[in-house]
Design a protein around this nucleic acid. Structure first.
Lengths: 353, 353
DNA sequence: CTGTTAGCGCATTCAT
DNA sequence: ATGAATGCGCTAACAG
């Protein structure tokens, strides 16, 4: 019921506890004779010995576990980043606790709390933070506590805290997407915004504004609606826009999930993409290439960002006790416009008339 | 750097270590005066105290962590089940380590190993096991070791081991999907199989055979191709089937990912769904309802299965030391055919001619 | 190269 | 109702 302990392995191998530890602990440099080593290994194998990471962690004050807190497990954006994290972590011998906060700040807080109790070596926040003062203050406080326990925090989307971050170039990507539409000749471009209070939304909206401004097009607030980064929300936002009667020939949805919602609604109304309406998304989640038409979108290097976050964490961990590794606090990963078939010059579609 | 310990809280609160433990440990029943309790709580709060779950776990020989091992993080089937698991676990105060094995048995083994070292309370296997003797033997061995350390293992897809399981009715669902096609008048129904060595594939294939048999249709092996449960694989399998020239009017893909691959290929060949070809999937992952046409598929209660797995684990944990809770070893969760627009009676489509 | 020892932070007897 | 003492399994000095 309670498994085998090192003491038992030592006894079975006819050596002391210390010696057994030395051969079974991969990070131990202490020399051990080949013969003794073999004996201990054999004893461990025959007893199905498995180190107790709790005891080890208690002793060395450091575990090999990370926590990744994501907004929504089912969103391909998040689970792809999470996969980048878990793969990179596993390669370094770390396990990753993945937590789905359901975009609930309180649940997020509870998860950080639990992770802290487990004395994780680091927590990665995957998903933008909220803009509110109170949220940022609470987060700052929480991270300070985390650090007092020796853990590091990393952001993989803007968080507005002073923590190290590996984030996509949201603003630049949104700018390029807008430019693309402008270059095709669109002048009335609707924008489907993410949740208002989320920093990621804000950055992408900014990029949209940049693009409009550069083209000398005035921002028309009636062409902007929030879709909460979900398919249903995106669809609902488009319904509002279309029903409002203000004409537009293209839609820039600030994430792919909402773009999918738009596709569904356009199809339901018999509006052809891109003939009647051009559509651009953001993220380049895997599924959008299977849709008809394949979606033009902005590629975010999701797995790469996840892996970079882990590398960052590992570097921080190694540097502990020395000075922090050089380099910027925030690394911005370039995003890239992927033109597929959902965009074209404005036609004389129904939406225009 | 090393955080606050209970000892410090006790000192700050002017009480003994034992007393501090009694008020801070939620599972402790020991009476403590309100005044002392308040003092300790205040001290803990002002010091930002957070229990060390490692020390606690070492002492009580039990952690509040589960491990969920999934085949592929990015597949909506798996991440949806995983979300059911993490949510249910969090509600019970447990954290879940989610591991993506990339369908690699060796990686799966390493993850179980790591989880065991962390002394997780339970391991949930999400995704079918392999049929091979060696795999099943190794798995049996591994589970035995896990249990010797007090952990429980649960399967959320057929595993062919004697472990408790909460699995979908794969065979029945596949049977119903086949019946549906037969009832529409199809007689030549192609089947896109999952990976051959995976038990889930085998169950679904069996259901397909059941349906054919009930309808008096002989199984034609030339109408079966394996697609490995991925979009690309499904598409490639369909290419082979189509190019082989053996006519058929409907396709039953044994998971939605492969059905999506089929849709893409049919579209590329100008074959209309369902006019030229009917198509059925399996799982009812969220995206398939957004496709054009929305896919007819077999719904698997994914989150429910995840939650059931956690409930099962919790019951096993509570019962430890007593007799195991009554009930079947394997609980089968009903699946349900969801008819959407990708199926219709056979037309005179090109595939037939 | 091997062995002895101390103590990580906590829950839990056993006293009081 | 509170406190003192013990040990979970392990690593890392320190001795030899």
């Amino acid at each position: 019921m309670s498994g085998t302990s090192l003491t038992e392995v030592a006894k079975a191998g006819g050596v002391s506890l210390a010696t057994a530890s030395r051969v079974l602990n991969p990070h131990n440099e202490h020399p051990v004779s080949d013969e003794v080593r073999a004996r201990v290994l054999a004893a461990a194998a025959s007893l199905n010995y498995s180190v107790n990471a709790l005891a080890r962690g208690l002793k060395v004050k450091r575990t090999r576990v990370f926590a990744a807190i994501v907004h929504d497990f089912r969103d391909p954006f998040f689970n792809t980043v999470a996969r980048g994290v878990t793969n990179a972590a596993e390669a370094a011998g770390y396990l990753t606790v993945v937590c789905d906060s359901s975009r609930d700040p309180d649940k997020e807080r509870r998860y950080v709390q639990l992770a802290q109790e487990q004395r994780v070596a680091g927590v990665l926040f995957v998903g933008g933070g909220l803009t509110s003062r109170s949220y940022r203050e609470a987060m700052r406080q929480q991270i300070a506590t985390l650090q007092s326990y020796g853990a590091h925090a990393i952001a993989l989307e803007p968080r507005g805290s002073r923590m190290p971050a590996e984030i996509p170039d949201n603003r630049g990507g949104a700018r390029r997407a807008t430019d693309h539409l402008v270059e095709l000749g669109h002048e009335r471009i609707a924008f489907i915004d993410g949740p208002e209070q989320v920093l990621t939304s804000r950055e992408r909206r900014r990029g949209y504004q940049d693009g409009l401004e550069a083209a000398g097009i005035a921002l028309d607030e009636r062409l902007v609606a929030s879709g909460g980064f979900t398919e249903e929300g995106g669809r609902a936002a488009l319904v509002r826009l279309l029903d409002a009667g203000v004409p537009f020939t293209a839609i820039f949805a600030s994430n792919d999930a909402m773009a999918i919602g738009c596709m569904v609604e356009l199809r339901a109304r018999g509006l052809a993409i891109p003939h009647d309406m051009s559509l651009v998304g953001f993220d380049d989640i895997q599924t959008v290439r299977w849709f008809d038409p394949p979606l033009t979108t902005v590629r975010v290097p999701m797995e790469e960002i996840g892996a970079a976050g882990v590398a960052r964490l590992l570097a921080l961990l190694d540097a502990d006790g020395g000075e922090p590794p050089g380099g910027r606090l925030v690394n911005v990963h370039p995003t890239e416009l992927v033109v597929r078939a959902s965009t074209a010059p404005p036609g004389r579609g129904k939406a225009r008339s």
